[in-house]
Design a protein around this nucleic acid. Structure first.
Lengths: 179, 179
DNA sequence: CTCAGTGTAAAACGATCACTTTACATGTAC
DNA sequence: GTACATGTAAAGTGATCGTTTTACACTGAG
């Protein structure tokens, strides 16, 4: 495996399991099996590594939740949690640990969340035939809530979110959401 | 003001704004205006301080969202964010930064989340006249989603959650949620 | 008067932090 | 065959980590 790939996926695991600040560079280089000199050649700094990890996670996450229905969306989220564990949104966590003061991290988080909104917007159109911002917002909030709650309640949270989302979709289909 | 109270509220602010691990004890003692010896007499360790902060926040939070309707619940959340800022659930953040390996923190978070569920359960009964676990779960997820999303989208997230919750309540009132 | 309790200031603890440097081994390309 | 890019190991940078210790001041109660 490519050195950079190995570094970033190792870092993602350690950051996710133990936190960003709590994970030192020594532990990182040791786990990835590379020298610290090589690490700094590749990512420049710890903040650079964090940003690189989040960028890669963004790509992987959106590839995995590439769904065209609410059921498929929450199904994909459930699979993600089953395979990767649920420890809260890694973007929010990075943002919180750095106090929102690292521009690279703020940027990648904004991009990630914007993509999520667009994906759900597309799903809403596929489900009810036209855009509906209020419905998109509701499903997005359920999605975020499930991500949040799965940390302490496990996969059941996703099932609850899916059911609520389906109900809102049905309501919008039969009478319009603004009735 | 009592020394312990001052210490804990100072620590809550610093932890919330800059992260738990990133906030050192020197910065803490300096901001609270006490010596490190006194700090350790009062809370024993940094983990002890974190747990004490979360306990106090739990008390304060539940006193503030003591509502008996969905509107009042989300109204209280919006006020909370306006006054204290929205930087994500401090319990989840503490849990994430410690990798879930500090028992005192795991406990206080579990208690906090359980209380939140009970509060919403009561609200559901007040709104539709009987318990409805699925509806409670849905509103809880919207509440968590709003907490989560307000970090990067501001108070508008709370308004979206309130609207979706009201819609689900109305649905449950007219036809029952299990229709 | 004294003693216990509670506070301060400041130094010291070894460990670890993010990061850099020095010195050396590769393989590949011109 | 020499120059360059890319890697390693390992020591060193000064700063900061959480925590403990030493030495001293103040206060209220017996």
């Amino acid at each position: 495996m490519d050195i950079r790939t190995r570094l970033i996926s190792t870092a993602e695991q350690l950051f996710d399991r133990h936190g960003f600040t709590a994970t030192g560079m020594d532990r990182l280089t040791q786990a990835a099996g590379i020298s610290s000199r090589t690490l700094y050649k590749h990512v420049g700094s710890k903040n650079g590594l964090m940003a690189a990890v989040l960028n890669e996670r963004d790509r992987r996450f959106h590839r995995r939740i590439n769904a065209d229905s609410v059921d498929a969306l929450f199904g994909a989220l459930e699979t993600w949690f089953a395979e990767e564990g649920a420890r809260g949104c890694l973007f929010l966590r990075a943002w919180g640990e750095t106090g929102g003061s690292v521009p690279e991290i703020v940027e990648v988080m904004a991009r990630h969340k914007e993509r999520l909104r667009q994906r759900i917007d597309d799903i809403v159109v596929a489900e009810i035939g036209h855009r509906d911002d209020e419905l998109t917002e509701a499903i997005l909030l359920l999605f975020e809530g499930a991500t949040h709650a799965a940390t302490y309640r496990g996969g059941a949270a996703v099932e609850g979110a899916r059911r609520a989302a389906r109900r809102l979709i049905e309501g919008a289909r039969t009478q319009g959401l603004s009735s």
